[in-house]
Design a protein around this nucleic acid. Structure first.
Length: 206
DNA sequence: CTCACGATTGGA
DNA sequence: CCAATCGTGAGC
C-alpha cells in the first residue's frame, strides 16, 4: 500500500538561474492556484518569456521603482503587475537575489474550467488561459499576490515537470519552440519566448 | 505635477 | 483597425 506524499514545489535554487535559462525549463511545469475553500486549479505552463537585466524590454531596465521592486528580490518571488489598466500579468522572479529578472507566464493549459468562466469562453476551454492577461483572469491572480513566494506555503505555487511529461518530452512528443517576444516596442529582436508547438492553449503562433 | 503609454484583449 | 481603462514613470 502506498500513501501519497504532498507534491513538492519548485525550489528557489532551481529558479535562481538567469531568466533565459529558466524560461524554457518552466514550460511543462505546473502553476497551481488554491482558493480559501480548498479548491485547486492546475495549469500546465505552455508558453513563457524571459526578461533580464540589460534587456530594454525589462521593467527593471532603467531603475528600481515601487512597481518593479519584487524583481530585485529573491528567486521564486511572484511579480504581478497591471497592464493596460485592466489585465494582470504574472512573472516568476529568477536569478540571484538583487539581480532583476523574471519569466512571464504567457499561457496555461488548465486541468478544468473554473466555475466563474462565462458560457462564451467555455466553448473553447483550451483557450481560457491562452494569454498572460487571460490566465490571470482565469485563476483570479492580481496584485494582492505580488511578492509572495511561489515555492510553497501560499495560495499559488509552482510544481516541476511530472515524470510522465519528462518521458513524453524525451520521446519527442513535445516540441519546444524558441522565438521573439510578443507585444514589445523595445528589445523586439531578442528571442526569449518559448512555447509548445501544436498546443491549443498557446497564446499565438510564430 | 502632468500626461502619454503599456510584457493585452475582444470586438468592429 | 481600434477602444477600454488606470497605474506608472519619464520629463518638465
Amino acid at each position: 500500500m502506498s500513501s501519497s506524499l504532498p507534491k513538492s514545489s519548485i525550489s528557489a535554487e532551481w529558479l535562481g538561474r538567469p531568466a533565459p535559462v529558466v524560461a524554457p525549463d518552466l514550460v511543462g511545469c505546473t502553476l497551481v492556484r488554491q482558493f480559501a475553500d480548498g479548491s485547486q486549479y492546475r495549469g500546465l505552463i505552455v508558453e513563457t518569456e524571459a526578461y533580464a537585466p540589460d534587456d530594454p524590454a525589462c521593467h527593471a531596465y532603467r531603475r528600481r521603482t515601487a512597481r518593479n521592486e519584487v524583481m530585485f528580490g529573491p528567486p521564486g518571488s511572484c511579480y504581478v503587475y497591471l497592464i493596460y489598466g485592466m489585465y494582470h500579468c504574472i512573472n516568476v522572479v529568477t536569478d540571484a537575489d538583487t539581480v532583476p529578472s523574471a519569466v512571464l507566464i504567457r499561457a496555461l493549459d488548465l486541468d478544468r474550467v473554473p466555475l466563474w468562466i462565462d458560457e462564451k469562453q467555455r466553448q473553447k476551454p483550451r483557450r481560457i488561459a491562452a494569454g498572460p492577461g487571460k490566465l490571470c483572469r482565469a485563476l483570479h491572480i492580481d496584485r494582492t499576490l505580488n511578492g509572495i513566494h511561489l515555492t510553497g506555503g501560499h495560495p499559488l505555487w509552482l510544481e516541476p515537470r511530472s515524470p510522465h511529461w519528462v518521458e513524453q518530452f524525451a520521446q519527442g512528443h513535445h516540441q519546444l519552440v524558441q522565438t521573439t517576444r510578443i507585444g514589445l516596442t523595445q528589445g523586439v529582436e531578442i528571442p526569449w519566448r518559448w512555447y509548445l508547438a501544436d498546443c491549443p492553449a498557446v497564446s499565438k503562433k510564430g
